[in-house]
């Protein structure tokens, strides 16, 4: 009895073994080596992988050359964290930010009168029965000419919400996008447009009419930005300054087809993505990043504890530092 029981068990165990499973014992039919060939559409080996032995050192800082304006001579070199100006392009985040800004820019002041707001008497227009015509209540009815509007626009707030950290990331992504494409030109502080001395003198002396002044500025700025390859033919240029610079802002107002000038306060992500290039003062760039890095620095301050997440921003490398050549 016991022997039979053991036999059953061993049979059962054999059934469970790998060899007993038919699907596993089916021999794989491998083609002979001679007939093997590479597929016609075989992709080349990608170069994105790297050797394990090679140390992975991602870029942590990126250089920013500060130019003088308008001759664009390189004057100094600053470094910014890659998290500020070298972020990967995230179109989804930029889209969120632009939509968010658009929503919050809507005035939402459209309003039509409902039947309860239309002025006038609420007398019944004609008797309910006997006239042979349709029954009518009062003349404010939406069906009547001059009546109220049913489901018309009402004053409302179209504003939507976006997490602050996402918005800040979008801002820096927009800057990074410009930076990577070489469309972010940083200038020394005090960015303004130099207009010719003789013209300014004549304008001040009242020798030129406003039309002539405008025509001159239009021609002058057009030629200047054209020579710099910054004008209309090259997608216009956005100048961003810390405060209103009269010459620059007046000139860009007149010669608007070649670009625009904005104060830092008026800039948003959409502005950074429009036009061919962004020309920004060094300190304004720093300020922009300072205002939009909530995802990089903590807002919780503990006494005696340093904010370890804070990264380098606008560190001047040249001409101040004395670093030996490596």
């Amino acid at each position: 009895m016991a022997g039979k029981g053991m036999r059953c068990l061993s049979e059962a165990m054999r059934g469970l073994s790998l060899g007993a499973q038919t699907c596993r014992t089916v021999p794989v039919r491998t083609a002979p080596l001679i007939s093997r060939r590479s597929m016609a559409t075989e992709a080349p080996v990608s170069k994105i992988t790297r050797s394990v032995a090679e140390k992975w050192t991602p870029i942590t800082t990126v250089p920013v050359t500060v130019h003088s304006f308008p001759d664009l001579a390189p004057r100094s070199l600053e470094t910014y964290s890659a998290k500020h100006l070298y972020l990967p392009l995230r179109r989804d985040i930029l889209h969120l930010a632009v939509v968010y800004e658009g929503d919050n820019t809507r005035q939402g002041t459209a309003q039509a009168k409902t039947r309860w707001e239309v002025a006038g008497s609420h007398r019944k227009v004609r008797p309910q029965k006997g006239s042979g015509r349709a029954r009518v209540g009062n003349k404010q009815s939406p069906l009547q000419r001059g009546g109220g509007k049913s489901h018309g626009p009402r004053n409302r707030d179209f504003g939507t919400k976006l997490n602050r950290k996402v918005y800040d990331l979008a801002w820096r992504t927009a800057l990074s996008y410009r930076y990577r494409r070489g469309e972010l030109i940083v200038t020394e502080d005090g960015l303004d447009l130099p207009l010719p001395e003789d013209f300014l003198q004549q304008a001040q002396d009242g020798l030129l009419t406003r039309e002539l002044e405008d025509a001159f500025i239009e021609k002058y700025v057009g030629e200047m930005l054209g020579a710099m390859q910054w004008g209309k033919a090259h997608g216009r240029t956005t100048f961003i300054t810390g405060e209103e610079r009269m010459n620059l802002f007046t000139a860009m107002g007149v010669a608007g087809e070649n670009g625009r000038a904005l104060e830092l306060e008026d800039v948003d992500v959409k502005d950074l993505l429009e036009t061919g290039r962004i020309v920004v003062e060094s300190s304004v760039l720093k300020e922009m990043i300072k205002r939009h890095r909530s995802d990089l620095v903590t807002s919780i301050f503990l006494p005696g504890q340093k904010n370890t997440k804070e990264t380098t921003m606008g560190t001047v490398v040249y001409p101040s530092s004395k670093v030996s050549y490596t």
């Binding site: 200038t187 130099p194 001395e197 304004v284």
Partner: peptide, 28 residues
């Protein structure tokens, strides 16, 4: 009111004498 104060760079009072001599605007 705002933090942009650090960004503002021009002044009028200190440069009046210079302004009389030099009318072209240079940023650097």
């Amino acid at each position: 009111t705002t933090a942009v104060a650090a960004v503002a760079t021009t002044s009028s009072s200190s440069t009046k004498t210079q302004s009389l001599q030099r009318r072209t605007l240079s940023t650097s």
